[in-house]
Design a protein around this nucleic acid. Sequence first.
DNA 1: GTCAGCCCTGGAGCGCACTCCAGGTCAAAC
DNA 2: GTTTGACCTGGAGTGCGCTCCAGGGCTGAC
Lengths: 129, 129
Amino acid sequence: MPSFGLTIAETARALGLSTDALRYYERDGLLLRAVPRSTSGHRRYEPQDLRWIELVTKLRSTGMPIRDVRRYAELVRAGEGNETARLELLHAHRRQVLADLAQVTAHLSAIDHKIGIYEDKLEGRSLSA
Amino acid sequence: MPSFGLTIAETARALGLSTDALRYYERDGLLLRAVPRSTSGHRRYEPQDLRWIELVTKLRSTGMPIRDVRRYAELVRAGEGNETARLELLHAHRRQVLADLAQVTAHLSAIDHKIGIYEDKLEGRSLSA
DNA sequence: GTCAGCCCTGGAGCGCACTCCAGGTCAAAC
DNA sequence: GTTTGACCTGGAGTGCGCTCCAGGGCTGAC
């Protein structure tokens, strides 16, 4: 009889991660708790674990370093009372993401300009390189 | 009497790179040509070198891997006739950047939502975690 | 002529974020 | 009862993109 919860492989598939990454996150302190185990010692991810890891992937994929995710997890693990610190960490990340987005957008438009030049060239309306 | 062109330190400052990165890019085939040297063997970056390296930094900072920048440089070095290939490389990169932007934007809004929750909490209008 | 400062080369080293592996356990399937 | 397959652990290895270093050369200021 299975304990409840998803196996590590199911969780990995559901979240688009590798099983190695899931184990790595746990070892590295990015999770809120040690993932519960079945009687045979296999991890069984519960909905709350899934939800947290999903947030972790969002922080990661917006460029937050592992070390900052860990700091955030530590704050949440520490329990209520440090909401201001959590908020500040998220705000700082938000500012960083917005700055990155602005830079990438600006540089993309320069690249678009380059693309336009090649397209003109290939249509025979040749301009400069 | 100085040869014309900027020294590696000046170039690094102007472009926001390190001198090591500039030498690395050259060694790794990301540039269009070997940077010209003064009589004493020091690099002297000319405007055309600056312009190209600036494009390289834009490609890099929008997430293009070194290897693809090198491929693009190779195409440009090969001379006219492969504009279609260059265009395709840039288009592929553009698609990737747009996809990344969309993902980051979507994930950012989830983070914003989280921020909103903490702000409500701190104002006493407590909701869920 | 010696000292400082900037540059050179080749090659080793580093931080990040995983990824891979060996050697082993356990449970269900045959 | 043995084979299969998913999982376990600790630790080594990998790819990327630089970054640092040792050992040395040139040049201009003093």
